[in-house]
Design a protein around this nucleic acid. Structure first.
Lengths: 218, 218, 218, 218
DNA sequence: GATGAATGAGGCTTCATTCAT
DNA sequence: GATGAATGAAGCCTCATTCAT
């Protein structure tokens, strides 16, 4: 670890990443896509309430009124980003849980890798999805909250399975889940492609940490 | 782990705690104290930009204009909360690092305990300090950022020390720091006194997790 | 008179009628006709300023932009309705004044009948023509104002004629005109086909009232 | 009747009066009063939707934001005017119905006089109360509608009473009420202090008209 | 300390209209 | 004829802040 790194971290406010990225399957063409991309950056940097629609319009090169040709309201731009973020996260978690050997250790490793990877690959999206959810109405936040609960349950099940199978030995399963989940979520706040780590390296290392926490480390 | 717990977690937006708490040494008498306490709740729930001074005044039972008899501006209310949060966090970290046996494992355990404990005891304060910092001007955010960097360095030093001494064996020291730091920070988002865990239990368990991550677990 | 009737009247805002009607000779085919009919309802209910072209487009099943393929501007839709309303009113008044016995009593009866009839048969049109005229530019409002003045003069002439001939005995001719004209105009606000009165009944009765007012009642 | 008069009437859009008047008991001091007075003129001239809060603020010599120190919303300014108008109208009607000789003819004369008088004395208020009610939400319009229904019932009762007592002979009581009520309401649209009629003259003459309509004329 | 009134700036959103497709 | 996207203006309202009382 160099001082440069800590210096870089020291000035961050909400996150370190500087590149706007969205999952590949997300349509980014046209004005709608432009709006989503610029909103991702602005909402991540300044928060939903800290971003005015004039800010957003200016970033997109349109008048703020034009925004309403593409989204019903400002809130719906956020809702779309939150949806994309949660769906991508959930999709990867589910895929990781099911694809590959079924033993708890291998599953845990795959799921933690996926969890971390999505936070390292899409840090802004994760920051927005995790930190700006409170700005959505209950109606618009609902789907995301359901996916979130589902993903958490997936991790809980693996932990319980591993404990039941004698593969894991943890002081407390619930706390293990919060710890594993939490450390992965925070990756979005500090990871930056300019750091000398590939997302996969972080994912692998965090997976190793998770296995060590469960007493099943290599 | 029961489904009840995960269900309760599933509805959270920014944090689970419901009780406003500030460190004991913080003066909370008079209108100024009332303002700080209500601001803590509102900023944690809705964010700085999502809270108007009218909201704040109403919560305090005063007109918004009265606020200016106690604070120069809205931003200074946040700055004060951010200061309190970071100072408490830093004070505890430094104290934990210095008090007690000097071997890396023991120090790491004490520091992680302190880190987690402050997030479990003052979840709202931590949420505000961690998530609303971006709403402060560089000038007002500066002191907090310095304390934050200092605390992180403290953890880095312990890790490096333990590695040098052969007490710790980690894939990567930087990633270990981010993981340990991150899982502790997220405690503020899910911990709630109504959960069947005392803050100390969480702190002890997370410290155990940290030691396991460093290969020095019990 | 039952309480039911007065209760029904009690909830009215601008008018009681619920059926959109326009004079038979008005072309209502095609999209232009549809626009006129829907505008009649909306302008009557909410007023010109209270109706957006989006509202109007939606009611017609078209996009608001399509409206401009049929009318130069929103104002011209109103102008057309105002024109139709005033022309129909004027045409009927003139016809009533000229067709039939020339004695003042008979003429007054016919003219009042026509005046009331048009308000009972086309209440929405009358409400729009009478209440929304102020939303038209002077240029577009001009023709309607001329027809209106002409119609009023027609009534004035009949009154003066009857007075000169000794057929009428009124305290004040001007006030008699305002009273007769006014009570007829208000018919548009309360008449509803669901009431147990045919438009002709109302017209006959009001004509009788007018004659009584002039001292020439049956 | 001169041509001048009809010419003057010919250019009117919504009403002829040019002087802003409110009942004497209405507090008109301070900014709130100023707002009410200017709103009365503007709403009468251009309608509620045709008047922007910037228009209103400018007329009052304040910024539009200041309006919100005195009224919760634009709609509440209208609601207050509507309330004042309906209460004044209702108060006078009730007073006229009860004060004086109880025979139906005398009561009818007094009530019609009151009805007309209030429309001649406060033409703008009447125009706003009668024509802009549709711009109020159901909640805010409710009280006015109740007063209106109550006033109408009062007239209905007098008519029925007179008929039962043999004092009146009308073709139809309901239509007599609509005619009497309607001709009085329209006074607000044409009466102007510059006309060579005192409000009392109009009221007396219209009362005479009403009595003639009921067959009880002098 | 506390407040009501005032303000300038700006919030989000809708307005009527245009135009290339 | 019809439309989706765009626009400049304007809609109502709330913002944080000031200041005389």
């Amino acid at each position: 670890m160099t001082n440069d790194r800590s210096a870089a971290l020291g000035t961050q406010r909400r996150f370190a990443a500087s590149q706007v990225r969205l999952p590949e399957h997300v349509l980014l063409e046209g004005t709608s896509g432009r709006i989503l991309r610029e909103a991702l950056l602005l909402f991540a940097e300044r928060g939903f309430y800290g971003t005015s629609i004039r800010d957003l319009g200016q970033a997109c090169g349109i008048r703020s009124a034009t925004l309403y040709s593409h989204f019903p309201a400002k809130e719906n731009v956020l809702a779309e980003l939150v949806r994309i973020g949660h769906e991508e996260h959930h999709r990867r978690l589910v895929e990781a849980a099911s694809a590959g050997p079924a033993d708890p250790g291998a599953r845990l490793r795959r799921v933690v890798r996926a969890h971390v990877l999505v936070h390292a690959e899409f840090p802004m999206l994760a920051v927005v999805a995790n930190n700006e959810l409170h700005a959505l109405s209950a109606e618009l936040a609902g789907p995301a909250l359901m996916l979130r609960a589902d993903g958490r349950q997936l991790l809980i099940d693996i932990l319980n399975e591993g404990i039941a199978a004698g593969a894991f030995e943890v002081p407390d399963a619930f706390l293990a889940v919060t710890a594993i989940s939490g450390m992965g979520m925070r990756v979005a706040n500090w990871y930056d492609p300019s750091l000398p780590y590939q997302p996969e390296e972080v994912a692998d290392t965090y997976a190793e940490f998770a296995l060590r926490m469960t007493g099943a480390g290599a």
